[in-house]
Computed example of a mutant assay.
Amino acid sequence: MHICHVNLASGFSGGERQTLTLIQQQAQMGYQLTAVVNPKSPLVDELRAIPQCQIVLCPHYTRQHGRSITATCDLIHVHEGRAIYWALFQHLLHRVPYIVTRRIDNPLKKKWLSQLAYRKASALVGLSSEIVHQLEKRHPDAKLVKIPSSPVTYPVSQDKVEQINAHFRGKFLVIHAANMYAHKGFDVTIEAARLLADTSPDIQFCLLGDGKERASLEGQAQGLTNVQFMGKQTNMGDWFAAADLLVHPSYTEGLGSVILEAMTAGLPVIGARAGGIPDIIGHGVTGHLIEPGNANQLAQYIADIAQQDALRAHLIKGSHQQAAACDISQTAITYQDLYQQVITH
């Protein structure tokens, strides 16, 4: 089977890591692979380490539409918003079928080109029930499939883990890792830290990330000694190994890949009952859920997990089971079944 993956993002965030993880797994499964990627993206260098993958550098969705790019491909797999237009043009020009994986739970755009691109797809994949719901609202007649993303694993440097542990010695370390956008709920985490500052001085919050909301959040956290802004991190494996708990109280979220990554690393997790997060956090089983924006709930659950070893062990066991169910080996087989259905249709 020859699959052409398309991701035209210029950065290297969760969606790009998911694209890479799937391509790596499919290479192990014996696929022929083509990847159409933005030349500015770090994804390019990662893909160069995969001999089975031919790389096509494409700075814009209107470029690189030669017949030869997909001449031997069975199907195009779209992984982000701009890539859907590239797949649409390739389909209209050369009749190559394509599927779309949508990772965000926002309502779909009403623009005619976007609607056409989704309508022409052979199948639409949502990472969560909420994303599938949003797809169904706009395209009720489409073939809709829910396939959760898979956790990415990161290398761990024991020296760096020990440095983090030494810096926060004696503290119960809570991390919140995301780009600092308003919908990521950092304000909720900071407010929970404020509520715990006097009653639980041994709980330390580290906010891992950067973005346009950082200055405002730093203002909100002014005077709190139990909150530290650590900036954007490239060594998440070290932080997962050093931390005691991950919180992710987003107001909206496609699925929350960082939650799955933390689960894989053996951390208990707390998320918000928003977007696709409830698909992977079963309250009291694989983690805890708060109502969006409820800092009081978040503070209480953090304190419970910090103080109750049995509860923490129970949640870690459940989170490991959830992460295993989303392993890339399972995800790749699910996608393979979908590819075969589209190809033979």
Rank of each mutant, 00 (worst) to 15 (best):
H2F: 11
N7D: 09
N7E: 10
I23F: 11
I23R: 05
Q24T: 14
Q25N: 13
V37N: 04
N38Q: 05
P39I: 10
P39T: 09
C53V: 08
C53G: 10
L57Q: 13
H60A: 08
H60D: 10
G66T: 01
R67S: 13
T70L: 05
C73L: 06
V78I: 11
R82N: 11
H91I: 06
V96M: 00
Y98T: 05
Y98M: 07
N106C: 03
W112F: 12
S114N: 13
A117D: 05
A123M: 00
A123H: 00
S128Y: 05
V132H: 02
Q134N: 03
E136K: 12
R138Y: 04
L144V: 04
V145Q: 04
K146D: 07
S157L: 12
S157F: 12
I164E: 03
N165L: 08
N165H: 09
A166F: 08
A166S: 06
L173V: 10
M180C: 10
D187P: 13
A192P: 00
L196G: 03
C206T: 15
L207C: 04
K212H: 14
L217F: 12
G219L: 15
G219Y: 15
Q222E: 11
G223E: 08
T225P: 08
N226K: 00
T234C: 02
M236C: 11
A242D: 01
A242H: 01
E253Y: 00
A265H: 07
G266V: 09
A272R: 01
R273E: 10
I277Y: 09
H283A: 09
G284L: 14
I290D: 01
E291L: 14
N296I: 13
L298E: 03
Y301P: 00
A303P: 04
Q307R: 07
R312A: 05
L315A: 12
I316P: 02
K317A: 15
Q321T: 06
A325Q: 13
S329M: 14
Q330R: 13
I333W: 12
T334I: 10
Y339H: 09
